[in-house]
Computed example of a mutant assay.
Amino acid sequence: MDEQAIYAKLDRASALMFAKDMAIVDELWSNGFRLVGSEVGEIAETRDELEGLVAYVFTAPFRLRWIWDSKPVTIENDIAWVFAQGRVEFVYDRHVHPAAYRLAAIFRRAGTDWTWRLYSGSEPMPQRAWPSQTT
């Protein structure tokens, strides 16, 4: 049952982002929450920063949605965490641009609900060839 509640949180966040609904701020925010996105500058530690970041993302000419291939949930007492892998889709009027995406999220039980504590998203890069060390 707790696992399903966490899945519902992931699904709701994705639906609100796709709808460009500012209710996403209320969905994610709790005192102490932190969002760390995949791009430079995508960090929000206060409600105002989260609201500003979301408003900025919503000005883009696309909608975002996440499709998860795996999203295992681990729960210990009142803490749960997810490491989800899949893709983010940038949905434009005439095409969809998919990109690999990873999410590490932490939740804390608050009564009968779960609150977001950390959202850390990333778009993994292709494996790079490491430069050789010169002496």
Rank of each mutant, 00 (worst) to 15 (best):
R47N: 07
P126Q: 08
A60W: 01
I79E: 04
Q85M: 09
R108Q: 11
F107Q: 00
I67M: 08
V88D: 00
W81M: 09
S14G: 11
A100V: 00
E39N: 13
R87G: 06
L16D: 14
V96A: 09
I75A: 01
E42S: 11
G111E: 10
L53Y: 10
P126C: 07
V88N: 00
E51A: 13
E27M: 06
A44G: 06
E39L: 13
A23F: 06
S70M: 07
G121I: 02
Q127S: 02
D2Y: 08
A23E: 15
R63F: 09
V25E: 08
G121D: 03
D21A: 07
W81K: 05
V57L: 10
A99K: 04
E39M: 12
F90C: 00
P98Q: 12
K9T: 02
A100E: 04
M22T: 14
W66Y: 13
W130G: 06
E27R: 11
L28R: 01
T112M: 09
R34L: 13
E49L: 06
Q4F: 02
L10P: 01
A23T: 14
D93N: 14
A23D: 15
A55L: 10
E45D: 15
E123D: 04
I67L: 12
L53I: 03
D21K: 03
I6S: 03
D78I: 10
K20W: 05
K71I: 00
Q4C: 01
G37K: 04
F90G: 00
G86M: 07
A99Q: 13
E49C: 07
L35Y: 12
V25D: 08
V54T: 08
D11R: 11
R94D: 14
F58E: 03
R47I: 08
A100G: 04
R47T: 06
E3V: 06
I43P: 04
A84G: 09
A19E: 15
R94H: 11
M125S: 02
M1Y: 07
M125A: 02
V36M: 12
A99Y: 05
M1Q: 08
L16A: 13
V54K: 03
F107M: 01
L64V: 14
T115S: 09
A44P: 03
L103K: 10
Y92H: 13
W29Q: 06
